[in-house]
């Protein structure tokens, strides 16, 4: 009974009446969407997708290589979009709930974009005493960004860390991957503007 024609018929019925009470809700049980399949065929030429696919192949599709593959995906995309999680889950034959639980357990993995550039403010004891809060206040006043937020154009994200181990440089800020020590709130803003503007110039060339 569960052949293609039957499924098509069910889909037609549900689509026609999806906003009314006419569809018996159990019919939705027979509708299985394939999020991963569609998205991956659309983005097959995306080098980032290719990178993740290559990594999965290199790890021989072992389910216990999940964390390594998630690392590769996060480095390629900057965060972990849901279709990529579907793609990885299908590839490694892991249940979706297992993939999602791993991603949400570790703080390193992020489901939301962290921004093209990141400004990580250390809020450890030494940096706090030396004025980390003033930097965070300045970022909130001038850019409207609180900890964990990203600008609307996805250019910049602000994060905080408990201690980055550079207490001698307090207050310390990490812009992308560069550590800047003994900074004033105004310095941080200037460096951020330099970063985002340099990106704009590179984009127009």
């Amino acid at each position: 009974m569960m052949n293609a024609a039957f499924l098509k018929m069910i889909n037609v019925i549900v689509e026609e009446f999806s906003h009314s009470y006419l569809v018996p809700s159990f019919l939705t049980l027979f509708m299985k969407s394939s999020v991963a399949g569609d998205w991956v065929t659309q983005h097959a030429k995306d080098p980032r997708v290719k990178l993740v696919a290559a990594k999965m192949k290199k790890e021989n599709y072992r389910p216990d290589a999940l964390i390594e593959i998630l690392h590769t995906a996060q480095n390629a995309f900057g965060h972990l979009p849901l279709p990529i999680l579907h793609f990885i889950g299908k590839g490694l034959k892991l249940p979706g709930s297992r993939v999602y639980s791993t991603v949400t357990f570790y703080h390193f993995f992020s489901l939301k974009s962290k921004g093209e550039h990141t400004c990580l403010v250390c809020t450890g004891t030494a940096c706090y005493v030396k004025g980390a809060q003033a930097i965070l206040n300045e970022l909130e006043d001038k850019l409207g960004l609180k900890i964990g937020e990203v600008t609307k154009d996805n250019k910049l994200g602000v994060q905080a860390a408990r201690c980055i181990g550079a207490c001698g440089l307090a207050p310390a800020v990490v812009l992308d991957d560069e550590v800047h020590g003994k900074v004033l709130p105004a310095d941080v803003l200037a460096m951020i503007h330099e970063k985002t503007n340099a990106h704009e110039q590179a984009g127009t060339e």
């Binding site: 939705t28 849901l82 949400t104």
Partner: peptide, 27 residues
């Protein structure tokens, strides 16, 4: 394996699939 646990600490929740609504679960 439809169910699993997401998050940690106070934020833990039981999830189905990719935190999708139960009715849309593929498993």
């Amino acid at each position: 394996h439809n169910w699993d646990v997401m998050g940690r600490g106070h934020e833990v929740r039981i999830i189905s699939d990719y935190h999708t609504p139960w009715g849309e679960s593929e498993t």
